[in-house]
Amino acid sequence: MFSLPVFLESFGPLIWAARYTLLISFLGIGLGLVIGALICAARLSPYIALRRFAAVWVSFLRGVPLLVQLLVFYYTLPVIGIDVPAFVAAVVTVGICASAYISEIWRGAIAALPKGQSEAATAIGMGPRDIWTRVILPQAVTMSLPALINELILLVKASSLVSVVGILEITRASQAQAATTFRPLEVYIAAACIYLAINLCLAVLGRYLEHRTAV
C-alpha cells in the first residue's frame, strides 16, 4: 500500500538534496556556456587547427556517455596528482559535456542568420567586432534561448548521474532514503515530483524569456 505520510516526509531531505542538483546544473550550464562559446568560436575561426580541435572536442564529448565521462574524469585526476573535491569534478565534467552541445546550438543559430544581416553591416562600413556584437550575437543568442533552456532541463536530469561520485543530490538522497525506510515507491515518486517541479519552473522561465525577447 502507498503510504501518504512516508511520501510527504521524504520531501524534506530530498528538497534539501535538491540544492546540489540545482547547483551542479546551473554551475554546469554556466561553465558550458563559457566553454561552448570558445569552442563555437574555434569552430568558426579561420584557423584549421582550431576548427579541427573544436570538431574533435564536440564529437568526443557527444559520443561518450556523461556517466562514463564522470567516472573517467573523477578517477583520472588523482592519477595525475590533482586532488579536487567530488563536487568540483562533477561541475567541471557536466560543464565540459554541456559545452559540446551548447557550441553546436550556437553554431546552428549563427548559421541560421541570413547572410544579408552581416552584409548590410559590412556595406555600411562596420568592422568585424561591431558586426559580431551588434548584429550577429544579439540575434543568435535570442534564437538559441529555447534550445539552451532545453539543454538546462536535460542537465537537471543528467545531474542525477553525479550520484556515482558520491554527491548527495536528489537521486542519491532518495536511494539512501529508500534504503533506510524500505519504502522505495513513496521515496522515488517524491523524487520524481521534485525533478518535475524544477523542470516545469525552467520551462516557464524559458517561455517568459522567449516572449520577452521576441521581436
Binding site: P114, G116, Q117, E119, A120, A121, T122, A123, I124, G125, M126, G127, P128, R134, V135, P138, Q139, T142, V215
Partner: peptide
C-alpha cells in the same frame, strides 16, 4: 586592408533586395 576598405565603404550606400534590416 580591412580598415581602408571600411573607410571607402562608408561613402557608398547600399540597398538590398531583401531589405536586410536588423530585426532586433
Amino acid at each position: 586592408s580591412g580598415r581602408k576598405l571600411r573607410e571607402m565603404r562608408r561613402s557608398i550606400g547600399m540597398v538590398f533586395q531583401q531589405f536586410n534590416l536588423w530585426p532586433h
